[in-house]
Amino acid sequence: MNVFRILGDLSHLLAILILLAKMWRSKSCAGISGKSQVLFALVFSTRYLDLFFVFISLYNLVMKVIYLLCSYITIYMIYGKLRKTYDRENDTFRLEFLLIPVIGLSFLENYDFIPTELLWTFSIYLEAVAILPQLFMISNTGEAETITTHYLFFLGLYRALYLANWIWRYHTEKFYDQIAIISGVVQTIFYCDFFYLYITKVLKGKKLSLP
């Protein structure tokens, strides 16, 4: 466990909590893509099946349970408690365009052709693209609330810190996981455009709006 990994995990947790706090305090999920949140719940559910088979560490177990719980609470808020505020007209990304290629790729490129491993691989590939419905929604409406941009920033920062973690682990442990690394690079690239807007607009006190 290195500092990049810990900061990455905390950044991920902070992103999830920012989103929940936004919905809780404003009693609204406007501007949030329910589809992206469903994909993230699917990512956690398929990746953390190992909770039933192995014990890695208390840290690992607690974080997985928190991520899973928060993810399902988020979905309950969007599709249950706050459904009247859900902006479904702008959440129009077609999920099959992501799910079909991701399922196909996890059958083609994996470490082992066993169910748990295929589900893990599926979760890694899906996580790389799960934010696309949210980014698509922002490009549909042309703007995002500042709090939503903080959520996206920490979610992107988490993956960028994981890249540093992998570089660190390669140099110190000779450990590398090419499926996670390649997917992580792809995932981080999706955030680059957003990072640019976040730094040049949101951090200068302006609202994120697209030209």
């Binding site: 099946l49 690992n60 470490y111 066993i114 748990t116 589900l119 996670a180």
Partner: peptide, 10 residues
């Protein structure tokens, strides 16, 4: 053989 227990990252 490799299995899911090898994945220690979140």
């Amino acid at each position: 053989e490799p299995d899911i227990s090898d994945h220690d990252e979140l």
